[in-house]
């Protein structure tokens, strides 16, 4: 327990930890304030006016379609005018009232049910970036300054020391993420209450938000663990930052090579897409090369549905390899 206490103190004594956490809170607060300021709750009068405008536009579109049908029917077959219309005048598009959503004509208003998932994703990505940096500097600076060597003189149990550091960091990161996430959800619930719409918020919707939040927490913890492990492998914070640049270069290379080699769905090899799919549950990738697959002269792309389970397994393998390598290196490499 004494090592856990020491590592907790060390984590929060580090200025970068405080600076990054405060920075994240400020960015989130600024975003919430911007959302609050740029939205407003629609009054019954505004709703009535919007419905009226939607109806007016529908009627206008229906009238225009009627005129076009009359012109079509009046056009002599084979004439230049008839060429502007389909052979069968009944095929001319006729608008439906449902296609004119009155919400388009309302002032900007925050729809909790439809817009909050993007807020969860934003929160998770911001926290993941901070977690990566905090994790990397927490252990990277220790190695670089020689403080890790000092600690090992006191606790000559390498895996226990690195494991405790990682555990303490992830524990506090999980706590901070859950706490901030709850505050984030509460803030947007209030924004929707006062500057938006809370309609359709069934328990199922809240459950769906909760599950997305849990996946977001997983993303944050994985980013923190990978940043920590990379910096420990390289014994310097710079290793984790360099790995990010390296990953970008490798990803571009893989994407280009996959395209050249005719591999289908090269996007599936892009790690950022895994994060997206992990959060949003699925993404349909399309192959527009249309190798002989056509219908009526048009292209029917082949599709590949990437699910959050696939993204999760891929990410878990990467996480296990990186953290495992860091632990192995800690166990066998000399501390010079």
């Amino acid at each position: 327990m004494s090592l856990v206490r020491a590592e907790t103190r060390r984590l929060f004594r580090r200025r970068l930890t405080s600076v990054l956490l405060i920075g994240v809170v400020l960015v989130l607060a600024a975003f919430a304030a911007g959302t609050f300021a740029s939205n407003q709750k629609a009054t019954p009068a505004q709703v009535a006016a919007a419905k009226q405008e939607a109806m007016r536009q529908y009627q206008q579109a229906a009238a225009d379609a009627g005129v076009q049908k009359l012109r079509c029917q009046a056009a002599a077959p084979g004439s230049a005018e008839a060429a502007d219309f389909p052979p069968n005048c009944a095929d001319i598009y006729t608008p439906r009232p449902s296609e004119f959503d009155y919400a388009w004509f309302l002032p900007e208003t925050f729809d909790l049910r439809h817009e909050f998932p993007e807020m969860i994703a934003l929160f998770a990505l911001l926290m993941a970036a901070a977690a990566y940096l905090i994790g990397a500097t927490f252990v990277g600076a220790e190695w670089h300054s020689g403080a890790m060597m000092n600690l090992l003189l006191w606790r000559p149990q390498r895996l226990v020391v690195l494991g405790t550091k990682l555990g303490v960091f992830l524990g506090w990161l999980a706590g901070a993420t859950v706490l901030l996430g709850a505050a984030w959800a509460g803030t947007f619930r209030l924004i929707a209450e006062f500057r938006g719409d809370t309609g359709g918020m069934t328990s199922g919707v809240w459950q769906s938000f909760g599950l997305m939040g849990l996946r977001g927490l997983g993303l944050v913890l994985a980013a923190g663990a990978i940043g920590f492990a990379l910096a420990s492998l390289g014994r310097h914070t710079g290793m984790a930052l360099g790995a990010l640049i390296g990953l970008t270069a490798v990803q571009i290379g893989v994407y280009v090579l996959a395209g050249f080699s005719g591999l289908q769905f090269p996007e599936a090899y892009l790690v950022p897409l895994w994060g997206y799919v992990w959060l949003y549950q699925r993404e349909v990738l399309e192959d527009w090369s249309c190798d002989g697959v056509t219908t009526g002269g048009g292209c029917m792309p082949e599709t590949f549905t990437m699910t959050w389970q696939m993204a999760g397994v891929g990410s878990a393998v990467v996480l296990a390899v990186v953290v495992g390598a860091a632990m192995w290196a800690m166990r066998v490499r000399d501390v010079n």
């Binding site: 020491a6 103190r9 060390r10 004594r13 580090r14 200025r15 600076a141 220790e142 300054s145 020689g146 403080a147 060597m149 000092n150 600690l151 006191w154």
Partner: peptide, 15 residues
């Protein structure tokens, strides 16, 4: 070798 941003007191109390 010590982490330079900590004070001597903090460094020793952490150890």
């Amino acid at each position: 070798q010590f982490f330079g941003r900590f004070t001597a007191e903090t460094t020793l109390s952490l150890l």
